[in-house]
Design a protein around this nucleic acid. Sequence first.
DNA 1: GTCATCTTCAACCAATCAGTTGAACAAGGA
DNA 2: TCCTTGTTCAACTGATTGGTTGAAGATGAC
Lengths: 127, 127
Amino acid sequence: MAVGDDELSRIFAALADPTRRDIVARLAVGDASVGELADPYDVSIQAVSKHIKVLADAGLVTQTKDAQRRPCHLEAEVFDLMTKWIEHYRRQAQARYERLDAVLAEVQADDHGTEHSHPHPQQGAAS
Amino acid sequence: MAVGDDELSRIFAALADPTRRDIVARLAVGDASVGELADPYDVSIQAVSKHIKVLADAGLVTQTKDAQRRPCHLEAEVFDLMTKWIEHYRRQAQARYERLDAVLAEVQADDHGTEHSHPHPQQGAAS
DNA sequence: GTCATCTTCAACCAATCAGTTGAACAAGGA
DNA sequence: TCCTTGTTCAACTGATTGGTTGAAGATGAC
């Protein structure tokens, strides 16, 4: 992860592994112990324990105590951090498109007759 | 990334790096060449070129040709794949909470008088 | 206390990653 | 043509990752 030690980096990195996404999917159904989570996979329990640690470090999972068991619980609110980040830039990009389309329409209205190929051309930076 | 070669894994992995998220943020404003993107960072252009390649392999960025320049363009629709995954499990977890709350309320109505501590207890699996 | 169960810690290994430097390639300008 | 600019390729390095095995902690059952 190198320098990517901020929370968002840890969350994205945690979900970059299919086994861990699978564990999250399983936990969305209901809490489960490490052993229960490890069952479906043919890797060692220790490996799954490590995966859970990664998810926990990212804040996606919390563990409580129940005798020897350490039931895992999905902290779904953490998803919001990601969703916010994603939506912010998706919106920004989309807004730019709309602005660009408006400009193109205006240009086209200006010199109507000269044909412009429509697909979004690149712009140097923000206009 | 090991076995995480599916598209979702590549996308999450790509965004797990703060420099790459930064590049995405920059591209949300407008298309930019590799050199322009590399400018703000004190790492080599080659390093940034590699980052862009990672983003491109994840489908988040496409590059076109403009003389020697290779303008990068953000493909924001790819975000939807992530958002869908996230929302699916967030909803599922949330629905489980609501179900659980309903059950707790019912139990509490049943034996009203016996005090139950409210915070969500874990359940073995799906009910 | 002793034993079995569930989980984590520690040490190791092969593979991947993010960075470097130096060379090559591609395209425009003198 | 030669030179400059922009980008990528290739080889190398140190750090991190996901996996392993074996031992050690906890905790309940006998």
